[in-house]
């Protein structure tokens, strides 16, 4: 099994469209969406029925409003301000809570508590191209890495069970624990960049991120020809990092139309220049993988 990760610094660089195209080119493959925010992948591919699998390692919060004496002790105790008080009732802001348990210990009536069930889950959907795994639930920032690990484990299991050869990974945004988690142990990292004012800054941090996981990345320049100055800048940047631009995809209107119709560009406009360049990138990448791992 080979694992191919695609990352890009900020969004709107065309990473999702590219991944969908790769997914249809790869044939026998599994796609994992490690970006816990929304991505175009789910819109394009996640339209079928979704199987949801609960994950047990997260805790939820419970509160018994009937027994509460409104002493407001918990408000003073919680240093995170996760418990608020308005309109004569206790309000709980889940996103601020670190589940430290201070409030439970201090509540004289013990009406606050944790329960093991929560709505954190993995979603699996069977698309015409292959299975897509993603997660549509909120979890604490500290636990996102764990969630991504669970997603990748599950996907690797899929590959093993169904004897699929390729695991495509949609990397998560930014440079942090969860984006590192999405890149650990992959075979190839593709960095997608496209003209924007942040692109150079992002490219540098993405190169750093992929070198952190021990892999020399392939750089793909999307929307090439839109801004020739930018193309030159990316080339110079790659050169100074001892890399080269692996592929260029020209500006293509059909990308957005393909997204709306829910297909990949390779299927929607197979004759276009962009589709041809995506195909060439895919084949050259496969060649380079087989050179490393015959």
């Amino acid at each position: 099994m080979r694992e191919i990760a695609v990352i890009s610094g900020r969004n709107t660089s065309g990473k999702d469209s590219l991944l969908v195209s790769f997914f249809s080119l790869a044939g026998q493959s599994v796609l994992v969406d490690c970006s816990l925010e929304f991505s175009g992948l789910r819109k394009v591919l996640g339209t079928g029925s979704v199987k949801v699998k609960q994950l047990p390692f997260f805790r939820g919060f419970s509160f018994d409003a009937d027994r509460c004496s409104h002493c407001r002790k918990c408000l003073d105790i919680c240093y995170q301000h996760a418990i608020g008080y308005d309109h004569d009732r206790i309000r709980y802001y889940e996103y601020r809570c670190s589940h430290c348990g201070s409030c439970i210990r201090w509540c004289p009536l013990m009406v606050l508590g944790f329960e093991n069930q929560s709505d954190i889950s993995l979603s699996i959907t069977e698309t015409p191209l292959g299975p897509l795994l993603f997660s549509q639930s909120l979890c604490e920032p500290g636990l996102q890495g764990e969630l991504i690990r669970a997603l990748r484990d599950k996907a690797a299991g899929f590959c093993k069970d169904r004897k699929l050869g390729t695991l495509l990974i949609n990397g998560s945004r930014g440079v942090n624990a969860s984006s590192c988690c999405a890149l650990v142990g992959v075979d190839v990292i593709l960095i997608v960049t496209s003209p924007s004012i942040w692109a150079e800054e992002d490219l540098v941090s993405d190169i750093r991120l992929s070198r952190h996981s021990g892999i020399e990345p392939f750089i793909i320049l999307n929307k090439a020809g839109m801004d020739t100055d930018f193309d030159d800048k990316v080339e110079a940047l790659c050169e100074s990092n001892r890399l080269s631009v692996f592929g260029r995809i020209p500006v293509e209107e059909s990308f957005r139309h393909a997204l709306i119709r829910g297909t990949s560009l390779v299927e929607y406009a197979p004759g276009s220049e962009a589709a041809a360049s995506i195909r060439s990138i895919w084949h050259r990448m496969n060649d380079s993988i087989s050179q490393v791992r015959p």
Binding site: G40, R42, E94, Y95, L138, R173, L259, I260
Partner: peptide, 27 residues
Amino acid sequence: SGMSYSALESIHNTDILIVVIDPAFFD
């Protein structure tokens, strides 16, 4: 951006919440 605890915290206590939607990315 995106839906996370950080997003909810940055929306917390706002008077007017404006959600920017790109029709191409609607699901």
